[in-house]
Simulated scan of single mutants.
Amino acid sequence: MPQRNGALLIPGEEMLSCFEAMRDFVVFTNKRLIAVDVQGISGKKRDFTSLPYSKIQAFSVETAGSFDLDAELDLWFSGLGKVRLEFKSSCDIRAVGQLVATHVL
């Protein structure tokens, strides 16, 4: 996954981490989040959304529960509004929150 997305990075940008959802994933770099939405039956079509840390105004994390099997990261961006990213329940969502906090606060 992330190996194929190295072409999306700009000079001086480094990939820090990558977290998976069911088919989608989020790449965290030192400058932004890249949300990758895998589309279609074959998964060959992908939507890449660049979300710069500098535009994040607030964020929250929600852990997975017994019936709600995915963890969630909600981000509020100036000029864009709320973006919700969902992660597998096995994802350490607190680590995701710390990663965002490191670059936003």
Rank of each mutant, 00 (worst) to 15 (best):
M1T: 03
A58S: 15
L73I: 09
F28C: 05
K82N: 08
W76E: 14
R32P: 00
R32N: 02
V96C: 11
V96M: 08
I93N: 06
I93G: 03
G81W: 05
N30P: 03
G97R: 07
F87T: 03
A95R: 10
R4G: 07
E13Y: 03
V36F: 02
R23Q: 09
W76M: 09
A7H: 04
M15R: 08
G97K: 08
S78L: 12
S60H: 10
K55M: 10
D37V: 12
M1S: 04
D68R: 12
E14S: 14
V36T: 08
I34D: 00
Q98C: 10
K55D: 11
I41N: 13
L105G: 15
K88R: 13
G40F: 11
V96Y: 06
F25D: 01
N5L: 08
V83Y: 05
V61T: 15
F87Q: 03
E14A: 14
N30F: 08
L16T: 06
D70R: 06
D92T: 01
T102H: 14
L75M: 12
A35I: 03
G43T: 04
I93E: 06
D24G: 06
S17E: 12
A7V: 00
L33P: 04
C18Q: 09
V83H: 08
K45V: 11
G40V: 09
Q57R: 15
G79S: 00
A95I: 02
F77M: 11
D92Y: 01
A64D: 03
F77H: 05
V38S: 00
G97H: 05
I41V: 12
T102S: 15
D37M: 07
S50H: 05
A101D: 14
K44I: 12
S42A: 14
L85M: 14
L80P: 00
S60W: 07
V83T: 14
T102P: 00
E86T: 15
L9K: 01
N30R: 07
G12K: 01
G12V: 01
F48G: 00
A64E: 02
Q39C: 11
L85K: 06
I10M: 07
